[in-house]
Amino acid sequence: MSLTESDVAPLEIPHIQQIEVNQLQCLRVQNSRGELLLALQGAQVLRYQPHGQEPLIWLSDEAAFEAGHAVRGGIPVCWPWFGDLMRNPPQVQALHSGGRLPAHGLVRSIEWTLQESAIEGDRVRLLLAIPATTDSPSLRHLPHGLELLLEIVLDDRLHLNLTTRNGSEQHLALTQALHSYFAVSNIINVTVEGLEGQNYIETLEGWAERQQKRDLVVSSETDRIYLDLPPRLTLRDEGWNRRIHIDARGSTSAVVWNPWVSKARRLSQFADDAWQHMLCIETANVMKDLVELAPGEEHTLGVTLTGEPLA
């Protein structure tokens, strides 16, 4: 199921509108610069499109929008671990045990609370939270007193800030990511700038440590963890004459992922040819870039996304 313009009535701009997409409660946000669609389940940005551009954020045409199930595409929130828990640092693994634990943490299928919303001129701000008092069964084993907040700001760009507050009496170790699926004209037209000379872990070849020799061009299945990164990466798309700047805060690691041909056929909510039109560049705190918080401390993982024409 997909959302089309005919599904929602036009409103004055800027605005925040509550809508339903299949089984999910969502917020549709518009200002004079662009449009955002957000699911309260998982606090997941589903779509972001600046006016006059192709979408920056990719959403699968086969996304199901079902309660209790993650949606393929958008910007899922991965917390308090990223990927397979058993591939995480020991101090992250130590906080979680027992039962079947899903990839990418515990909050992607939880309904978040909209705590604040504000419109100031052309700027729209949303604050979503999983409060410290949550009674979600999947979070009950975590130290009591943790609070997770996601601030989303739409102005001429898109800003996300994911804040963890450790209000417990225990030391907390976590990994996390803003798992951004970027829309591209075709993967063969794309270059990722800012990775040259950076170290990475090649997860598809025994988690070997490698060094990126030049800007990244994706030409096969890709699943790499980049470390010690500069604050800015840039996704250059010759087909759409566009670059997307990805400006990270509170992060020196990122994951780059594309399933390519064979794996795409095995993925749920994913068309066989969808790999051609997306690339994940996930702003993260993973591996040695994990977050450790003493009682009373907090950490914010943030990213700002900017689309602009190629010069």
Rank of each mutant, 00 (worst) to 15 (best):
S117A: 08
I75Q: 12
L126D: 07
R123F: 01
T133V: 00
H141D: 11
W81M: 02
V71P: 05
H96N: 15
W79I: 05
L126M: 04
H69A: 11
N88T: 14
H159A: 03
G145N: 03
S138L: 09
A177K: 05
E147W: 01
G105V: 10
I152E: 07
N186S: 13
L106D: 13
E169R: 07
E116I: 09
S180R: 10
A173T: 15
G167P: 12
N189Y: 01
E66D: 03
I119R: 03
A63K: 00
L128I: 15
V184Q: 07
I188P: 02
S185K: 11
H171N: 08
S60K: 10
E111Q: 11
R123M: 11
A103T: 10
G145M: 02
I187K: 04
L142W: 06
L85F: 03
I119D: 00
R100F: 15
V124P: 10
S138E: 13
L148P: 08
D156V: 02
D156N: 05
H69V: 14
V153T: 14
P143Y: 09
I152T: 12
G83N: 14
H141F: 08
I187N: 03
W112P: 01
E116C: 07
V190L: 09
L127G: 02
S117R: 13
T113S: 07
H69R: 14
P102H: 06
N161A: 12
P90K: 13
F65Y: 05
N186Q: 11
W112H: 00
G68C: 05
L149R: 08
A63F: 10
I130C: 05
I130T: 03
V107F: 04
R165G: 01
G167H: 14
R87Q: 10
L106Q: 15
L148E: 04
P102V: 13
R87L: 11
E147F: 00
L150S: 08
F182Q: 04
A183E: 07
I188Y: 07
A103Q: 06
D84L: 06
R165L: 12
R72S: 09
V107T: 12
R140M: 14
L128M: 14
A63N: 09
A64E: 15
L101Q: 02
T134M: 06
A177I: 10
V124M: 04
C78E: 04
L101F: 05
S60P: 09
A118V: 00
L114N: 00
P102L: 11
